[in-house]
């Protein structure tokens, strides 16, 4: 992805209201953009940048499919304005793999079958990455608490927990 993107307005509706210029670093790449003030971070990522890895599930702050890291902290990007991310770092699922190598969390989800339909997976993985950064050695209870804001309608969570434990072990932690 080019490091100097052309400023583009991002609302899925015609721009009607006030706009702001924002500077955001997304997966280590800095961007300067004009956004309408009411543009949500998830729409900015998906519609302006074409980064559709971040999913929209409920659009009402309930499911966590839209989870991204804002300054390393997992948040629901359907309930954050793009202008709130001005001057900050955003990490999305597209930023996990590096140099053709999957992130340990991605390895974990693959190896332990941590997904069925995959809809919740990007959000679930971003939450997992943040958990392991803060607590490299989580107990099952701590894992279950950490992912309690991310809903999965397929797996029953058992394999998701195993996937995160797998990633913890692969990264040197793991209980």
């Amino acid at each position: 992805m080019a490091s100097t993107a052309i400023p583009r307005l991002t609302s899925p509706l015609p721009i009607r209201g006030a706009t702001h210029k924002i500077h955001v670093t997304i997966n280590d790449v800095p961007f300067d953009f004009m956004v309408e003030d009411r543009t949500l971070l998830v729409h900015f990522l998906r519609d302006a940048l074409g980064m559709t890895g971040t999913h929209i599930g409920c659009d009402t702050t309930h499911c966590g499919a839209c989870t991204v890291l804002l300054d390393d902290v997992p948040v629901k990007s359907c309930t954050v304005l793009a202008v709130q991310a001005d001057g900050r770092k955003v990490r999305t699922v597209e930023g996990l793999e590096s140099g053709g190598k999957l992130h340990p969390v991605q390895e974990g989800f693959t190896t332990e079958h941590g997904l069925h339909c995959g809809y919740c997976t990007p959000g679930m993985m971003m939450t997992s990455v943040a958990l392991l950064a803060k607590n490299p050695n989580p107990t099952e209870e701590e894992i279950r608490r950490a992912i309690s804001g991310n809903l999965c309608r397929c797996t029953g969570y058992v394999n998701i927990v195993k996937a995160i434990q797998h990633a913890a072990k692969a990264s040197g932690g793991g209980k």
Partner: peptide, 12 residues
């Protein structure tokens, strides 16, 4: 359809 807020002006 995307659920977005009505227009407003943001100040920080």
């Amino acid at each position: 359809t995307e659920v977005i807020p009505p227009e407003f002006e943001y100040h920080a």
